[in-house]
């Protein structure tokens, strides 16, 4: 074990970095080691779930990585990390966006919403979340946050979609369990709840 890395020093480094425990900068700060060449992070200010967050990001860092590993918002899932499955979907200015396929520094002036930001301040579920619970829409649940965000994006744009419109709106979200029918039941139930 590296004798320079103590528990106290590691935590101190994490706190000093202002980031979660997965920050590379924190590790190097704690250990006192030189960073490898080419290792550059820039402080970026992004608006996530209504809060301005200052976070060190690398130039090629995806929004999914920042959300999950820097900000601890692990509700955003990585299923494929290459824009195929939709598990990492969040809303950027109300538009469903694959966070695995966009870079964090591109969103300095945008409004980012993740699944963690949908509940009301008193803990009430968003109507889409409530409807998905009532319809038992999730099975394995790994794709569910992405399905929720796509459905929320749809209802903001079109509060009364038909089932077929909902099907097309959610078509970018794969569910390997095949729970599409239940998710669509959930969207239509959410329309009722918000109606």
């Amino acid at each position: 074990m590296n004798p320079k890395l103590t528990r106290r020093r590691f935590i101190k480094g994490v706190i000093a970095s202002g980031a979660a425990a997965t920050s590379t900068a924190a590790w190097y700060s704690a250990t006192g080691q030189e960073r490898p060449s080419g290792f550059v992070e820039r402080l970026v200010r992004i608006n996530v779930n209504g809060q301005v967050r200052n976070v060190d990001v690398e130039p090629q860092e995806t929004l999914a990585s920042t959300l999950r590993y820097k900000l601890g918002l692990t509700g955003t899932k990585l299923g494929c990390n290459r824009g195929e499955c939709g598990a990492c979907t969040v809303l950027v200015n109300d538009t469903p966006t694959y966070t695995c396929s966009v870079l964090t520094h591109s969103f300095k002036n945008d409004r980012i919403e993740t699944v963690e930001g949908l509940e009301s301040a008193n803990g009430d579920l968003h109507p889409v979340q409530q409807a998905f619970v009532e319809e038992l829409a999730p099975q394995y649940g790994y794709c569910t946050p992405g399905q929720v965000m796509s459905a929320v994006g749809l209802l903001r744009e079109n509060p009364s979609p038909t089932r077929d419109e909902a099907r097309h709106a959610l078509a970018g979200n794969i569910c390997r369990c095949g729970s599409y029918d239940s998710y669509l039941d959930g969207v239509m139930r959410a329309v009722e709840l918000t109606g």
């Binding site: 918002l73 509700g75 963690e116 829409a137 649940g141 569910t144 946050p145």
Partner: peptide, 11 residues
């Protein structure tokens, strides 16, 4: 189920 729709359940 609530943990799945809120993202709170941990994989």
């Amino acid at each position: 189920v609530p943990g799945k729709v809120t993202g709170r359940i941990k994989y």
